[in-house]
Design a protein around this nucleic acid. Structure first.
Length: 423
RNA sequence: GUGGCUGUAGCUCAGUUGGUUAGAGCGCUAGGUUGUGGUCCUGGAAGUCGAGGGUUCGAGUCCCUUCAGCCACCCCA
């Protein structure tokens, strides 16, 4: 390593994931695949880069994600591309492009992968962040909403998360939202002087967002604001009632929260968040909702959809608090002393590995003591000791690290010895 | 993009009103046992004190600039 060269660092907000955290990531991914497949979902892998227009139209031109957070660039062939800031738009694009709706009356997808948003990093938020999401296409039934939420709940339980709250809301549909919007704006205009500066700005752009402003001054005003529930059209009321009924049947507990508002334009009717109070400002671990207009918006037929996405980093932060790092089990450590011992041990180790036994050794020439120390540190269940004595006798010493006992085993018989015992 | 806090060994941090060769614990490593671990004891390696500039006889310590990290706003998973 040169002294004068600058260290190359990871890009801001794009950290490496390695041991011990990677263990938790793998458990989360495995659990997701397992649970989602029991509900009939299949994985879809879409590209990380898409045409910028996809997100402009799908996520919404005026959302802050599209306005100022996307990693967009023009490639060498003059194509305007963007590193996906979320997963749903890509999945819907693929769904349309493949003509899937003409092949199958309904389709269930799940995906996992990195997303990119250029925000200021903070707790539970990175610029490259990993999402696992699900999309259920072409089902209008409110029981689709309920089942999707129940599946999320099922997954969170299986992965070992505790203490999350499910908050549920409906943000109406294109039929009833405009009338609520204008009622809300009218009310807020009258109280404009008491709102925080941010909310005054939101008034013109995205009044719904004022509902979940955290400032105390705004909360007071919001408390008196007209309720969306009073403005729902009959279809929305009916739909929401059925979603709640579905959740009851599926035994999922929820609390209603009229202030759950999603920040992406495509959501309508059902919206939900699984929240925690243990992640500072980022309380949403998994969130989603229904997006019936999106497929059409992206040039497909008028087809409904419902889904969710979860933030891996946030989930892992929570799991770190409950999961102990898993100890390496079933490890056989080879302590070899001298070159002839090493040469005798190498083929044995390889046979064991081919049988699925986990084997490690130290490549350097080290004292037996040092090798034993390392074996203990790795929590090996057994250590095979081979030195010149063992070579001449044809017998290795096998030490049981838990019991502290040891026995002699013929070197030739070592594979059988461990395969039989360890399974 | 806007604020606040923090940058001293791989990690967690001490470093007194600026004063000689920069410290501890953990970790790593070697020994205490001709070839036997998790406890204990002893040694060792490892830091251009985030970077650049300034004040001073002298700066880890004071001033300026800059970079990075963390947290919050905004927004979202």
């Amino acid at each position: 390593m040169g002294k004068t060269e600058k260290k190359i660092r990871a890009v801001k907000g794009m950290p490496d994931v390695m041991m011990p955290d990677i263990k938790i990531w793998q458990i989360v991914e495995e659990t997701a695949k397992q649970v989602f497949s029991t509900y009939g979902y299949h994985e879809i892998r879409t590209p990380i880069l898409e045409h910028t227009e996809l997100f402009q139209r799908g996520v919404g031109e005026s959302t802050s994600v599209v306005e100022k957070e996307m990693y967009s660039f023009v490639d060498q062939g003059d194509a305007a591309l963007t590193a996906r800031p979320e997963g749903t738009a890509s999945v819907v694009r693929a769904y349309i492009e493949s003509g899937q709706c003409t092949i199958d009356p309904l389709t269930r997808y799940y995906y996992m992968g990195p997303m990119f948003r250029r925000e200021r990093p903070q707790k539970g938020r990175q610029r490259q962040f990993f999402q696992i999401g699900c999309e259920l296409m072409n089902v209008e039934s409110p029981f689709a909403d309920a089942e999707v939420i129940a599946m999320a709940d099922h997954f969170l339980r299986d992965v070992g998360i505790e203490g999350l709250k499910l908050e549920l809301n409906s943000i109406g549909c294109p039929k009833c939202r405009p009338s609520y919007n204008s009622a809300l704006v009218e009310y807020l205009e009258s109280a404009k002087s008491k709102l925080c500066a941010n909310c005054v700005r939101r008034l013109g752009k995205n009044p719904l967002r004022i509902l979940d402003c955290k400032k105390a001054e705004c909360n007071k005003i919001v408390e008196e604001a007209p309720r969306f529930s009073k403005y729902w059209c009959s279809d929305c009321v009916e739909h929401f009632d059925a979603v709640k009924k579905g959740l009851d049947s599926l035994e999922v507990e929820y609390t209603l929260n009229e202030f759950i508002v999603r920040g992406l334009d495509y959501y309508m009717r059902t919206t939900f968040e699984f929240t925690t109070d243990k992640l500072g400002a980022q309380n949403a671990v998994l969130a989603g909702g229904r997006y019936d207009g999106l497929v059409k918006e992206l040039g497909g037929p008028d087809i409904p959809g419902v889904g969710f996405a979860l933030g891996m980093e946030r989930l892992v932060l929570l799991l770190q608090q409950t999961m102990k790092d898993s100890q390496i089990e079933d490890l056989i450590y080879f302590a070899v002393i001298g070159e002839s011992a090493r040469d005798a041990a190498l083929p044995i180790m390889q046979i064991l590995r081919r049988d699925g036994v986990r084997v490690e050794w130290d490549y350097a020439v080290k004292s037996l003591k040092a090798q034993m120390r390392r074996a203990a540190k790795l929590n090996a269940e057994s250590v095979v000791i081979i030195g010149d004595d063992e070579i001449s006798k044809g017998q290795a010493v096998v030490r049981d690290m838990r019991a502290g006992t040891q026995q002699e085993v013929r070197i030739k018989d070592l594979p059988m010895h461990f395969v039989d015992i360890g399974g």
